[in-house]
């Protein structure tokens, strides 16, 4: 899933301080799963904004709405007739959401309510971890099913570097050295010889380095 975290409320109220009618817009996709942008969080943020209104003596009207997904025009359409009622929209979907809303409703003032962090998963309740860098050319099978592009601080294809200590990365003791894990796993699988092979430079043409990406699937295009 796409993992996000809420922006500090202080930053959000600064963004919308000149508006009176504010819509907090949630998404039932990834951000609901990572407890940051679903209906529940819409309620909490809307309530916080109302408390701020009370504190600062503002006559705020805060609306709440949660879409099935904010990354699909069909659901964004649902806001027709709603967006126009508000001076500002705070989207608490990933970075895709505020853009889809902005693109569909050109006059709307749309603000991001969360910071989109990474593609990853929940490793424990309340703890998420990055797994994919979206490089566009998956290579995890060379590395015991683990991705050094996303998970090594230096994206080394031929690691581990000299900063690996006790299975931890040099940048922080709380960061796993994925190369340590890769070496251990490949050793256990009796595939160390594959790691000893030189891995040539990666082509980043399929990654963000190749420019903004899009994808067309002819069989699905109407």
């Amino acid at each position: 899933m796409i993992v996000a975290e809420q922006k500090p409320i202080r930053e959000l109220v600064e963004m919308v301080k000149d508006f009176q009618k504010i819509l907090v817009l949630g998404c039932k996709g990834c951000v609901t799963v990572c407890n940051v942008g679903g209906a529940k969080e819409v309620g909490v943020l809307a309530s916080a904004l109302r408390i701020w209104g009370r504190k600062t003596g503002r006559d705020l009207q805060v609306g709440e709405h949660t879409l099935e997904r904010q990354c699909d025009p069909e659901y964004i359409e649902e806001l027709r007739g709603i967006v126009g009622e508000y001076d500002a929209v705070i989207s608490i979907a990933c970075g895709v959401g505020p853009q889809f809303v902005s693109e569909r409703y050109p006059t709307a003032r749309v603000f991001p309510g969360v910071n989109t962090k990474f593609m990853g998963g929940a490793v424990a309740h309340g703890i998420w971890s990055e797994r994919c860098a979206g490089c566009g050319q998956c290579v995890v099978h060379y590395f015991g099913g683990l991705c050094p592009i996303a998970r090594c601080s230096k994206s080394l294809m031929n690691g581990p570097c000299g900063g690996s200590a006790d299975g931890r990365c040099e940048i922080h003791k709380e960061v796993e050295c994925i190369w340590d894990t890769i070496v251990r796993k490949m050793t256990e699988q009796g595939r160390l010889n594959e790691l000893i092979e030189f891995k040539p430079p990666k082509s980043w043409t399929t990654a963000r380095d190749g420019g903004p990406r899009s994808m067309i699937r002819e069989e699905l295009v109407k």
Partner: peptide
């Protein structure tokens, strides 16, 4: 980190 040290050597 376009390329790593191994790839730089090569």
């Amino acid at each position: 980190f376009d390329i790593d040290s191994m790839q730089l050597i090569h």
